[in-house]
């Protein structure tokens, strides 16, 4: 059993980490002139909670066999993940501006062979839960007790493979598999409900035999409490449906799907950083 400290001091510190990740996201995309800002901004709080408080990981030993795993199934949001890995000390901050450039350790979408601390290759949507289930089953074979966390988008639940994985994870009673769904309500082409029609989503997961929770995905206390609760579920895989705002933290990006993939100009970057608290 793991314990997760949930007190005011922790929350304030994680909020600051999330703010820093958001600043890194918009800065990286501006500097590298490519990337997906708003899908990364919506997961910043979950990424901060996991990398700075929950995950059992060691930047000095990124491959340690009993580390917790995290798979960013919605790989296009990887600027948030890269920022967290750099801030956590897996590689120098100087790598961040090289994102999506030739010979960078930070590929356009996550690639496990190049980026220290990165557990899985992703980017093609719908695959994270299957990879995570493989990692959970590997832990059983190897006698290890790590947790595997997967962050999926809401749009990618339109992929059939998600539901193949959902069935198999329930069959294998994958209690150490914890999925966080970033439910920001938008996908590349528009509103989730207009493009794919996945709702009602919670009853689907329940029907597939999963433990489900619904939270505010920008409330760190709720994020930590939900993860703690999910860790205690032993016989079922867990999904935390986190309601989020695409572009969260940068007012002109919030719920504006133009920012799904768009590079902020110098002026837009300055506005975004000011909204995120500037250099404080």
């Amino acid at each position: 059993m793991r314990s997760i400290r949930i007190d005011q001091e922790t929350i304030i510190s994680l909020e600051e980490k999330a703010r820093q990740i958001r600043k890194d996201v918009v800065t990286m995309i501006h500097q590298s002139s490519d990337g997906h800002p708003s899908p990364a901004l919506s997961i910043a709080d979950m990424i901060a909670a996991l990398y700075f408080h929950v995950l059992n990981i060691d930047p000095q030993n990124p491959e340690k066999p009993d580390r917790d795993r995290l798979i960013l199934s919605k790989g296009h949001a990887c600027t948030a993940l890269c920022a967290a890995l750099a801030r956590r000390g897996f590689f120098p901050l100087s790598a961040l501006p090289t994102f999506r450039s030739l010979h960078s350790i930070l590929q356009g979408h996550p690639y496990q062979k190049k980026t220290p601390g990165l557990d899985a290759t992703t980017g093609s949507l719908g695959h994270g839960i299957s990879i995570g289930l493989g990692m959970v089953l590997a832990a059983r074979v190897l006698g290890l007790d790590y947790f595997t966390y997967v962050i999926i988008g809401d749009g990618e639940q339109e992929e059939g493979l998600i539901w193949e994985a959902a069935m198999a994870a329930a069959k294998y009673k994958a209690g150490r598999l914890i999925v966080l769904a970033d439910c920001n309500g938008l996908q590349s082409g528009g509103k989730i409900q207009e493009v794919g029609g996945i709702e009602p989503i919670q009853p689907k997961w329940e029907a597939f035999g999963w433990h489900t929770q619904s939270i505010d995905g920008h409330n760190l206390k709720e994020i930590l409490s939900a993860i703690l609760k999910a860790q205690q579920v032993e016989e079922k895989p867990s999904i935390i449906l986190a309601r989020t705002i695409k572009g969260k933290g940068v007012p002109f990006m919030e719920n504006n799907n133009d920012w799904h993939k768009k590079v902020p100009t110098k002026e837009e970057l300055e506005l975004a950083l000011a909204a995120l608290g500037g250099n404080r």
Binding site: P65, R69, I71, Q112, D119, A120, T121, H127, S130, I131, G132, L133, G134, M135, V136, L137, A138, A139, V141, L142, L161, A165, A168
Partner: peptide, 10 residues
């Protein structure tokens, strides 16, 4: 894909 996850974990 499950096999990919397994192979990633040794």
């Amino acid at each position: 894909t499950v096999a990919a996850g397994m192979a990633s974990s040794g």
